[in-house]
Design a protein around this nucleic acid. Structure first.
Lengths: 140, 140
DNA sequence: GTAATTAATGAAACAATGTTTCAACTAAAG
DNA sequence: CTTTAGTTGAAACATTGTTTCATTAATTAC
């Protein structure tokens, strides 16, 4: 799907930086870090605009943030019209060696029981380990 | 259990700042943020030492870090001799209104299936919502 | 297509969280 | 009580993210 159409469909302004951001994410199968996005946006990249667009576009359901831990955050387009504003709907895998992050779309999140009176809003599941290409796989 | 004994049992040096850190965490039923710990440590608190002790004491299995998101991190003593170096073994609940964090020790974490060749190391589950004391509970 | 309106941009400055280096110090062991 | 090895705290830095404000670009009306 073209960046232009995505933006129009979600009723946010079509600006050059947003189109460049979406294009950058479309060049990858996997979620990308800010640095990886910056490298793909070249001179279209501005840090402040990036953060603002991440906020706007995630609120409108175009992309979502994946918090691996307090120092690693990834960004990914919402696949296939599923409008997950946060990373509610699927499990994420993070390779501790190469940093590759995978959305495990097909894996449903368990319904965890909460104490009485508590209300669920979202549930983030991050699995950390080693992907099949990484040697860390053989060490432990 | 006394801070001194905890440190001895895990074979790390008994220093004033470590004892103060453990004492601070023992004053609370729930995991605490750095600021909450600082307030409890008073003049025994030093930022750099704090971060170093968090690292040392979590490696030795005395406490663990709970990453709520990229801007909210909590710290908690490992309860009952369970030596979870990371927050592997239990689910955490975070109240989006008051920030209260609860370790749901009794809740087992589902074994999520991974793609072929991928290896699990840890699985972090953070449930966000509203605790029973918070009005956000009634808004949504 | 042009003017008016509204929202987005980018610069500067800031805030929070965490790390590194290095000299001074303290805990544990002999 | 002395030695040794690990710990501390100061200074400086790195990363991620936010706020304000003037400028600029995108949409709407004409």
């Amino acid at each position: 799907m073209k960046p232009n159409d995505i933006l129009q469909q979600h009723e946010v302004k079509k600006t050059l930086s947003r189109i460049a951001l979406i294009k950058a994410l479309q060049t990858s199968e996997q979620p990308l870090s800010e640095n990886e996005i910056r490298d793909r946006m070249l001179d279209q990249y501005d840090r402040i605009t990036f953060y603002r667009n991440v906020q706007t576009l995630s609120e409108s359901g175009i992309l979502h943030r994946i918090v691996i831990d307090n120092t690693h955050v990834k960004y990914a387009l919402n696949c296939c019209e599923k409008e997950h504003h946060h990373a509610i709907d699927h499990v994420h895998f993070y390779c501790k060696e190469c940093g590759k992050t995978v959305c495990l779309d097909e894996v449903p999140v368990q319904q965890y029981p909460l104490p009485d009176g508590f209300k669920l809003d979202e549930c983030d599941v991050v699995i950390k380990g080693y992907c099949k290409d990484c040697p860390g796989n053989h060490n432990a």
